[in-house]
Design a protein around this nucleic acid. Sequence first.
DNA 1: GAACGCCTCCCCCGTGCGGGGGAGGCCGGC
DNA 2: GCCGGCCTCCCCCGCACGGGGGAGGCGTTC
Lengths: 220, 220
Amino acid sequence: MPVTVLLVDDEPLVRAGLRAVLEAQPDIEVVGEAADGAAVIPLVRQLRPDVVAMDVRMPLLDGIEATRALLRTVDAPPKILVVTTFENDEYVYGALRAGADGFLLKRARPAEIVHAVRLVAEGESLLFPASVRRLAAEYGDGDGNRAARDVLERARLTEREGEVLRLMARGLTNAEIAARLVVGTETVKSHVSAVLAKLGARDRTQAVIAAYESGFVAPG
Amino acid sequence: MPVTVLLVDDEPLVRAGLRAVLEAQPDIEVVGEAADGAAVIPLVRQLRPDVVAMDVRMPLLDGIEATRALLRTVDAPPKILVVTTFENDEYVYGALRAGADGFLLKRARPAEIVHAVRLVAEGESLLFPASVRRLAAEYGDGDGNRAARDVLERARLTEREGEVLRLMARGLTNAEIAARLVVGTETVKSHVSAVLAKLGARDRTQAVIAAYESGFVAPG
DNA sequence: GAACGCCTCCCCCGTGCGGGGGAGGCCGGC
DNA sequence: GCCGGCCTCCCCCGCACGGGGGAGGCGTTC
């Protein structure tokens, strides 16, 4: 049985594009479309898609609210793949934290789009922007610091937040980080919360994973 | 001011070797020696070393108990560097969890020994065996699965524990791992605890770090 | 001067996490 | 047969963590 997908985007062109890309796959079926977040819940109840490809910025009800509403009101909710134009759209992080399962750039190549849909359908999650994830590869053998700095900038981490993330990625607790930076634990908590929000991470473990995956910290 | 070190090992030969290696450094000073764990606490009170290089297997009081006792009874305790002959000595994990700051193989090269002492003195921690950390590099471009399997074997992770660690390294919570593996959360907790113990990790974050550092999971 | 971003610290609160125990079922080896 | 390893599940418990707020100081920018 194919993976069923509901497309939610206010631009018909985008819906058509996604439909064309996804329908080209024998194992993926687009079962419906919606032009705004408000229409999503009844459609999901009716069509019971496996995956909802959801734009973030939409009239009436945006992708964040729609995601939250879906997860709150629907039994066995579909997987939610957040679609956006801009990497590091702050709204994306909001949606991920609202419970979305994955992240997809509109400019992604068709193969990536298909891959993303299959992944979230299987229950895997695309925790954070693929763009960030691949930054290390882009600068690959070049300047490592450049890559790290870039990840930091694109994620809009402040210098302090970057320090904190680095220490988190060394396995330190908030109290230990506080001692190391000679500040209060409440301060560290603030920074940690900011890091989690900006990386779309749910907890420090996911943040550390993001740090490794993005090349912000490197093994060895 | 130099880093001061207290050597604790029941074999005079090992103590002599460590002393020779460390004294060769201008910034490291060996301030004392002990032949068993029972002698450590009074010596530490008297000498107040920065670092205690502590054997694990010793008569009277082993390294684990000595570490525990030190941290419990001494104010501003020294950093503790656990020294052992065998990688994956179960005792080592016990010592690390008792609060030791680092891990050192007796067969390590002099430069590595010096490096380890300096690191723990600075407050950094060597979370898990360097041997494990470098396994990925050893098999580097070769068989990735081989490396992962090997890490798994050397850490003596069972198959199930390996599965759990992999899911931890994807950022899943215990409940999510339980759902994925179709078992109870209590079961997952058991596996997680086993993984933490075997990796010498304090929490899941450190375990995930270990997974990345060892090459058990790879970025990208 | 006002506005903004950043760093700092504070409160309350729920809960996921991890420690420390134990225990039963299953299977393979001795 | 018995034993040991592994997987499974259970209890209690304390605490670090993270969410949700707010707030003051400080430097830069406009």
